[in-house]
Design a protein around this nucleic acid. Structure first.
Lengths: 207, 207, 207, 207
DNA sequence: AATGAATGAGCCTTCATTCAT
DNA sequence: GATGAATGAAGGCTCATTCAT
């Protein structure tokens, strides 16, 4: 029945999508209420369950949909011909940040979904996440030129350090944002911060 | 009434503690069921609420209790006279890993609690977490000798990179372990892995 | 959602109304059980709370509904052009008695509601009661001709005596009825009884 | 076991009595909590049920005890040689008021008990109340001299009117008191008010 | 396609009462 | 006498899901 949902008129489809997105992003799987979703999407209870067999299917569909939207946009914005890995990782950070601005609800939902603990969806989400990492890591580092690294550097480990560091920066900033009244993320500060680390990595790893 | 609970005979106390721990670790605050807890602790409904005013008090008590257990053990195992920061961080990683073996449920619970989103306990948990970070970061880096770093290195950022890398290693290994049938963590591999990174850091950051 | 309830098919609506009425009349607010109500109305738990947000809203709705029914009928039966106060009070007593026959459950519920002590509804009920007294006392004594009273009589106090006496008669008779096996009220006796008092009052107060 | 309770040392007995009195006066039978009673009487749960088989027995005992205290004091204060009925009724009012000041908790409890609706105790209370009325009405009007009434007056009805009027005054004043912030009853006003009615009755009924 | 009334299992919590000590 | 841990039924309420229309 999801196919029927997909061929729905755009306006109503989006109303449903957004309502569900917001509800689950805010309250997680178990706590998210289909009641609230239909209310805020202004459709009837029955209709939701006409398109989606149950809450679980809706949630999982939403996850797949979000990932698709994000990945699509992500790779459109990445210049895969840039072979310098540090520059490419910098691009990743930039694009991530731009996407946070563009799809705040989707990103919120996906973030929350990643840490979802409800047994009912947990495994399914983890499975999809793992599949994603595999394919995408490969794609993300396609065409990377490794010859710039100093000899003697364990390249794989170096890349790990870079990735983990960028993750560390994001997480730290998000945590900070949570403590401020409005929860606004200061993107410019993150970019500046990241640049300092990037310089350190270049000096350390590159010839 | 929590005091009454604390002076309970060890066996029953542990039955209750473990039942609650497992339930909340698996399903989070909102989804965790006191029904299940009493069932698996083999006590009556009434008794749980004899000791704990409500679900929220039980959850928060559990959190405090777990943190106490973990911190106690953590600082017992750390040699605070080791002033070399990389060595101290290596100690942290080792101890963390040992604790994962020793208190798997407690650690699982605390991890889940940190990301708990239920409005009913979220703020309380965040507050406690912040208090903890403040006191413990200071304690953890007490007596650290910074003079070993090369001149020109941004020490704060260097430490961040080290910390995030160790976190990255742990998370990666835990993820790997989840995918294996028994979910066993291969501690020796982690230690070896970490050692390689440590050598890199020493070379990079130290005189 | 009460509006939905109101536009329900008469038969089911009445089943719910009567079930709630009887339960609360018998056991009061706190002790009245929504479980019992749904059981005796033969509807599901969920449905009751589909129509009424919670027990409190159901109770208060019931009160408003009863008052409306009673007042409507009351003023339909009173001849407001009768300006003789004693005659009007006699009418009141007669109508009251007729209504006791017609709406025994409603009257029972309202009586119990007036003396309800549960903090959760007490104030709300009192507030509504006060509003009612204000408007209705005026309406009840509209167009009353006071010139028939002997000079020197404190009219206000005289009216009080008359009202309290009629109340005393009703209460006494109701108490008597409770002691008889079937609890039947002997309306004819009450009317005769009241007439004797009315004669006394006329002689005493009127010119 | 109640006999054991009665021979308890005065201080503890009163602690229990008062705790129960206050709890039930405030919350009624069903809502009154034995938990609260033992807590405020500072005795153990078990002890309460050692003396009283169950909550019901405690409640009913309390009722009997209160009635006994009140009646004892009442008749001590009434001058049964006063044969003028209006004067005797005036005495009743005075004594009632004095007792309200002296035993506020007991009176509150008894008032609430009279209107108690819980099926578990309702009938028992009603039965006792009826027995009381019978014996006490006789005692209250013992030695009344009826010869002062004008001829042609239906004495029984006249007395009813007087009683109901005094009840009406009290109820009205209590209602008024409830609406003022502190709920204080203005005894002097009630006395003055009653006196006016008494004068009316004397003029009307007496030779 | 679309509605929303109806269901009932499950949730957290309270409480009188019992009983081993 | 005295304790208080232990019980479990019952309470109000929520919610995903179904189904007749």
């Amino acid at each position: 029945m999801i196919s029927k949902f997909l061929s729905l008129e755009s306006e109503k489809k989006n109303r449903i999508l957004n309502a569900a997105l917001k509800e689950f992003a805010q309250k997680g799987y178990k706590n998210g209420s289909t009641n609230e979703i239909v209310k805020s999407a202004e459709i009837s209870k029955g209709l939701l369950f006409h398109y989606f067999k149950n809450k679980r299917e809706l949630y999982l569909f939403l996850f797949d949909y979000c990932i698709e939207v994000l990945l699509d946009d992500f790779y459109n914005k990445i210049n895969l011909s840039q072979s310098n890995i540090i520059e490419r990782l910098r691009q990743f950070s930039m694009v991530k940040i731009k996407m946070l601005e563009r799809y705040p609800d989707i990103i919120r939902f996906v973030e929350v979904a990643f840490k979802e603990d409800s047994i009912e969806v947990k495994n399914e989400i983890e499975e999809r996440t793992n599949k994603l990492s595999d394919t995408n890591l490969k794609k993300a580092f396609e065409g990377i030129d490794v010859s710039r690294f100093k000899e003697g550097i364990d390249v794989e480990k170096a890349i790990n350090i870079i990735i983990w560091t960028f993750e560390g920066i994001s997480n730290t900033e998000i945590k900070k944002a949570k403590l401020t009244p409005l929860g606004k993320i200061d993107y410019d500060r993150i970019i500046d911060e990241a640049d300092v680390y990037i310089e350190m990595f270049k000096e350390w790893f590159y010839k």
